[in-house]
């Protein structure tokens, strides 16, 4: 169970990331109800207080909404979801660029290697 979590990152953040991915991939759609805090805690094997924190943070970011007595729902504000999608993309790209720069690659090297890589991947599929 514990193996599912990276030990150097807060668990509430790791669960946030998992939920964000589901929303960005449209697996959980605008207006969908999230599992209750208890259900989510049992599914992930995590303290319910941690899930509560995850939901509060997502609410603060405008990704989910809690409706009194009904539960927590994915926001119906599609712009907020689009912003999240852009944000996740930028984070991954920034990580990539930082790692590559640390190894001494230039921006042109990176663009070239991305093109090469995507050609290679296409090749594999055929």
């Amino acid at each position: 169970m514990a193996g599912e979590f990276d030990t150097t990152k807060p668990i509430y953040m790791q669960i946030m990331e998992k939920i964000n991915k589901k929303i960005v991939r449209n697996e959980w759609k605008a207006g969908d109800k999230l599992p209750s805090v208890r259900e989510m805690a049992v599914q992930t094997g995590v303290n319910p207080n941690t899930i509560q924190r995850t939901y509060s943070e997502l609410e603060r970011m405008g990704i989910v909404e809690t409706r009194r007595g009904q539960g927590t729902f994915v926001t119906e504000n599609v712009e907020a979801i689009e912003r999240l999608r852009e944000q996740l993309k930028r984070d991954i790209v920034a990580d990539f660029i930082r790692n590559m720069t640390e190894l001494g690659f230039t921006m042109n090297d990176m663009i070239a290697s991305l093109k090469d890589f995507s050609k290679g991947e296409d090749g594999k599929k055929q």
Binding site: T7, T8, K9, P10, I11, Y12, M13, T50, R53
Partner: peptide, 10 residues
């Protein structure tokens, strides 16, 4: 969670 956040430690 604070331990993980500030010290990156389990």
């Amino acid at each position: 969670d604070e331990l993980r956040e500030t010290s990156r430690d389990s």
